[in-house]
């Protein structure tokens, strides 16, 4: 009797264990399906294998979200800190349409028409390229409050289609030569501008600055 009972208990424990294991394995599979099993943002994955290439970064800026949002929402400001963007002209309208002129190698430019696809005041701005652009891309910037008085966490995500034909890929490469690096540097410069009112440069003379070089090339 005693033995049977023990076997019975052991059996149900084992069964429960298997069941739990199955649940856990199911959870594992479903997490694996969405690409990771931790809390890190997608951007930090070792490989993002989708059809699109995703780049981005987060910085913390010691300024209120409202101020940062307002500056970014005015797309005409972006070339101030975006290295490759020569000019953005706003087309007006409710969808915040804008035309971008982006510097590419050998003195050429890449043109982009965008409209705002989502706009949550002081929290999020998303945009996407429109028909007739040289490249297919979407972008998003989010502003979330950092703990204490540390300011605002600003995350930039840019996705672009790197499949295309040879031409498309060429343009994509030209547009974002080192997309990771570019996004990182652009965000750093945004932070500098917001926190210090200027963009750090070790230039010794005006002729060595980014602006002077931009004008020279452009």
């Amino acid at each position: 009797m005693k033995n049977n009972r023990e076997i019975g208990i052991a059996g149900s424990v084992a069964a429960a264990g298997v069941a739990l294991g199955a649940v856990a394995f199911g959870a594992f599979l479903s997490r694996r399906h969405d690409g990771g099993n931790d809390d890190a943002p997608k951007i930090a994955r070792r490989k993002n294998q989708g059809e699109h290439t995703l780049v981005g970064r987060t910085v913390t800026i010691r300024k209120p979200a409202a101020e940062l949002y307002a500056y970014w929402r005015d797309f005409g400001n972006l070339p101030e800190f975006m290295e490759n963007v020569e000019q953005i002209t706003k087309q007006g309208g409710t969808k915040g349409r804008a035309n971008w002129t982006i510097k590419a190698p050998a003195g050429t430019t890449v043109d982009l028409k965008t409209e705002i696809t989502d706009d949550v005041e002081n929290e999020r701005i998303a945009w996407a390229s429109l028909e007739g652009s040289d490249i297919e891309t979407t972008g998003e910037v989010t502003f979330t409050e950092a703990p204490g008085d540390r300011g605002t966490r600003v995350s930039l995500r840019i996705e672009y289609d790197a499949r295309g034909g040879a031409i498309g890929r060429g343009i994509a490469k030209a547009f974002l030569r080192e997309p990771e690096v570019q996004a990182r540097h652009d965000l750093k410069r945004f932070k500098m501008l917001m926190e210090t009112g200027e963009i750090a440069t070790s230039a010794h003379r005006k002729s060595e600055t980014r602006k002077a070089k931009q004008q020279e090339n452009g």
């Binding site: 290295e83 690096v181 990182r184 540097h185 652009d186 750093k188 410069r189 932070k191 500098m192 926190e195 210090t196 963009i199 750090a200 440069t201 070790s202």
Partner: peptide
């Protein structure tokens, strides 16, 4: 300081 080293020199 996070802002004195130019962005392109931080890597």
């Amino acid at each position: 300081c996070e802002n004195s080293n130019p962005a392109e020199k931080q890597d």
